[in-house]
Amino acid sequence: MSDPVPEYPIIVEGLVNRFGSFTIHQDLDLKVRRGEIIGVVGGSGTGKSVLMRSIIGLQIPAEGSIEVLGHSITEAEDDEDIDIRSRWGVLFQGGALFSTLTVGENVEVPLKQFYPELSDELRQEIARFKVQLSGLPEEAAYKYPSELSGGMKKRAGLARALALDPELLFLDEPTAGLDPIGAAAFDRLTRELKETLGLTVFLITHDLDTLYEICDRVAVLADKQVIAVGTIPELLATDHPWIQEYFNGPRGRNAKDSQDRVKGMDKLSAGSS
């Protein structure tokens, strides 16, 4: 039923977004490769979330074209969209869980929407193991969102985003507000999912550890455009002042050091065995 994933699952060309007279994006271009985790960084207010909302069709851009999994989002009729909607999962910043449903029922919503032929038991079982796969205890499936902490809401939101095993995953600041252990576990989970399921991940983050740890490439948003896309060493080779400050600031250096330490230890253990 699903067409193969094209080489570039997300293609954004000449995107212009305006709020009133205020321009957020001007001729923004971005291509995301199949099977990569692309990190999107940028200062506050540079339109990272707006870019994500444009790609998933929640924000209608003023100009430009957006293609997701080979389907045009900017020209799509409503019905045509639905086929792609079952192939992506979105995690919003606050989790955006349906507050009148339990976590388990939240995960069941997309399953019920797209695959009504599944039996109730199987759907509940799928919801239950997705909740556990996202790192929540089993009891969490029966709780309401208002009974969960911020980090747990994020995990529950991830469980819902992954309910259909999507080919594309959008994560809006998944590790913000998580404790460092939880954030590292979340990073591991994202990478594991990408490797086992071959996901393409569009990840908005401020977390430098996440960037170093799991992102294949990083896209930098500044001056209303994507000013650079590449691996972190490639970005460091550019001389844009914002990029330099971002990665060479005290936090950037710390994240890099810890990454180097991990790699050094890996080398040591590889050499000794």
Binding site: Y115, E117, L118, E121, L122
Partner: peptide, 11 residues
């Protein structure tokens, strides 16, 4: 063996 192709396989 994917979610969209399972149908009533479990039953």
């Amino acid at each position: 063996l994917r979610v969209h192709a399972i149908g009533d396989l479990d039953r």
